[in-house]
């Protein structure tokens, strides 16, 4: 059973006051997330990451298509879901502990276990010492941590995190990364959106790249990053400052022989590996509108996995 599944998910909004016209925020998105995976939703601002998460949480409703969580239509498995929105704001008249307790109550955590669960969640996000602090007095980073605590307090099977590292200092980011890995080791599925590519590179088993509401690529990071492994970077000096040249791996030895014959000094030979950023920013973004499928819309440089399993 898949943890999360989007099938041809499409969302149109109506924009304009006098003559509203539909604007497509998400275009036939198909995704499949396995249980126990850390899955990254990547894309620029406005790419459709938050729209996808909101559709999965039934905060907005699809124009067409279907979203399923743990095999059930989205909205049916709320007890198994944790969610942290982007730049969260919480009831500032509450203390941190009270807030997490409130969400534990809403998540039907039994009263006898609630106190222990709340203490565990606050401890895991590094807020145990500030449990009695009013949210009014919390910094942005502290609010983000409390937000994470409310998302995990009921130990959900599937966790949706919208830009979870936002507003955190380096230590906080590391703690959140460790927490996500810990949740994975406990068997939870984590789907998070980010535009911070290093986070995705460090954490994600698989990622989906969204561009203008469409799936531009989906797959294992190794697969996505292996796109240019057949190329090698040469750094050499030949009577002047060092130069850089990228050659195909098959042509490496011939190129080296030629440079040596010319009296060049070879400084470095480095196999090229695409960074996620290169894929993210690669040309070939699909057109903004139209009804093509996600697979058809994907740029040639980015492999797209089968849309449904």
């Amino acid at each position: 059973m898949l943890a999360v599944e989007c099938i041809e998910l499409t969302k149109d909004y109506r924009a304009g006051f006098w003559r509203p016209r539909p604007v497509r925020a998400l275009d036939h998105l198909s995704l499949a997330v396995e249980q126990g995976e850390i899955f990254g939703l990547l894309g620029h601002n406005g790419a459709g990451k938050t729209t996808t998460l909101k559709l999965l949480l039934r905060l907005i409703f699809p124009t067409s298509g279907e979203a399923r969580i743990l095999g059930q239509p989205a909205g049916m498995m709320a007890r198994q879901i944790g969610y942290l929105p982007e730049n969260p704001y919480f009831y500032d008249y509450l203390r941190c502990r009270e807030l997490v307790e409130y969400y534990a109550e809403l998540a039907n955590v039994p009263a006898r276990e609630r106190r222990r669960q709340v203490a565990w969640a606050l401890d895991r996000v590094g807020m145990a010492g500030a449990a009695e602090t009013s949210l009014r007095k919390c910094s942005k980073g502290m609010v983000q941590r409390v937000g994470l605590a409310q998302a995990i307090v009921h130990q959900p099977a599937v966790l949706f995190l919208d830009e979870p590292m936002s507003g955190l200092d380096p230590l906080g980011r590391r703690q959140v990364r460790d927490l996500i890995l810990e949740l994975k080791s406990r068997g939870a599925t984590v789907v998070f959106s980010t535009h911070i590519l290093s986070d995705a590179e460090q954490l994600c088993d698989r990622v989906a790249i969204l561009q203008k509401g469409r799936l531009a690529g989906q797959g294992r990071l190794e697969t996505l990053l292996a796109g240019e492994e057949d190329k090698v970077e040469l750094v050499f000096a030949q009577a002047g400052p060092p130069q850089r040249r990228v050659v195909a791996r098959a042509e490496l030895w011939g190129e080296l022989d030629q440079l040596r014959a010319q009296g060049a000094v070879i400084h470095a030979v480095t196999p090229l590996r695409r960074s996620l950023e290169e894929i993210f920013l690669s040309p070939g973004a699909p057109p903004a509108s139209g009804g093509r499928s996600a697979a058809a819309a994907a740029p040639a440089a980015v492999p797209v996995e089968a849309q449904r399993r």
Binding site: L59, R79, F90, A107
Partner: peptide, 13 residues
């Protein structure tokens, strides 16, 4: 407006 409803409705409410 404050998006507190998002986290609330993500729970079984």
């Amino acid at each position: 407006e404050r998006r507190t409803l998002y986290t609330l409705l993500a729970h079984p409410v």
